[in-house]
Amino acid sequence: MKADIPAVQLERVAKRYGAVEAVRDVSFSLPQGGRVALVGHNGAGKTTLMKLMLGLARPSAGRLLVLGRDPSEGAAETRRRIGWLPESVTFNGALTGREILRFFARLKGENAAAADAMLDRVGLAEAARRRVGTYSKGMRQRLGLAQALIGAPRALLLDEPTTGLDPEMRQGLYDILAGLSGAGTTVLLSSHALEELEGRVERVVILDRGRLVADGTLAELRALARLPVRLRLTLAGATPPDWLASAGGLRRIAARAVEIPCAPEDKMALLRRAAEDPAITDIELQAPTLDELYAHFLRGQGGERGGTA
């Protein structure tokens, strides 16, 4: 596969199950080595999109290519290069973690040693000989990650990968993903925990009821949304200075602290003024969170469309 063609490419893809339109008219593409988050409510179409990319379902309309081929052909060579972690992954509880991972490794043409090394990498080496039925939710999730990561995938599709993982393991996962995408693997992950995506993905695709409502880098989406920045000011006295009190939207959040929203273009002027005023002892700047961005795009969906990064 050539280096310049996208790893995943969707053109006006739609999928309906009977009367339900799970995905409607979605187009985007993921570059090789990209790290992208797919964000949306339950039922927004994230899992359906992944199934389409895996060739487990055929699009009702539109065209999609994964690693340069139509996934519904089911080409073994393509499938060997794709790792998938399903949402709330399950395994047959009667087998041990090692047996399961070795089975999946062999299906992808890897040997048993690679499977054992991967178990070690996700921290399951000690539990490898135990039945999966005795595993905790986090351990099953780690086994799910292990099977997705095995065989040096060129594309990784992770459906809610961090559910059930403790913070340390979460960090470990993001480190692994950063390493993989640095080596050219495309990572697409869906998530509910928007806050933790900050700084860990390059791009966010927001879906709502099967439609793409926004697609861009976090900075682009912020610029597009024009959400107000919030300034938190700590005051020397109990009352805020007059110039501040007359500004709109002032909100008292503690005895000596206030919060004020301000449009992105007014931010610097406000900061300079606050910095010069001795009545203000501390300034804290809060950029709009991903949650707010998300809420904004879902509210505005239908009318405006996201940028095309």
Partner: peptide, 10 residues
């Protein structure tokens, strides 16, 4: 739910 994962393999 184990069938889907299996079928995503080659």
């Amino acid at each position: 739910g184990t069938m889907l994962l299996l079928l995503s393999y080659p």
